[in-house]
């Protein structure tokens, strides 16, 4: 089968979850209760919404990840062609990694990798 068959797996997932939830909706009891629909916070009504401006620490890692992930995409074709291309490819990747390593070092020095 070709890669167009990917669609079938996509649909399968939808069917499986959808059917499950449908059956569950048919079988499950339903009752309305205001307290039940409160967000869970250890049994105490929550103070304010959870949708707030959140700490930057998490995003910093997301940004660094983005840089490195883009670079990993470069490594994929290189890894495949490494054996054919031989020495030239090796030297190139050493240079590439040096640059990458410098970037990591910079982030390290800037304390971007330290959770504050």
């Amino acid at each position: 089968m070709g890669s167009e068959a990917l669609v079938i797996f996509f649909i399968c997932a939808l069917i499986m979850v959808g059917a499950g939830i449908l059956v569950s909706n048919l079988l499950a009891p339903k009752s309305k209760n205001l307290q039940k629909e409160e967000p869970y916070e250890c049994g105490i009504p929550t103070q304010g919404t959870a949708w707030i401006q959140f700490r930057v620490g998490y995003y910093l890692f997301a940004i660094i990840f983005l840089i490195f992930d883009v670079e990993t995409v470069f490594i994929f074709p290189w890894a495949v062609g490494m054996k054919q291309a031989g020495l030239a490819a090796f030297i190139e990747i050493v240079i590439f990694f040096l640059v990458l390593g410098l970037g990591l070092l910079y982030a390290w020095k800037k304390k971007a990798l330290t959770w504050e």
Partner: peptide, 19 residues
């Protein structure tokens, strides 16, 4: 979920999985 525990959990999961 609009739940503070869930939000922290999700944020952690995000930072963790992408790393």
């Amino acid at each position: 979920s609009n739940n503070k525990y869930s939000l922290i959990g999700a944020m952690r999961a995000g930072a963790q999985i992408i790393s």
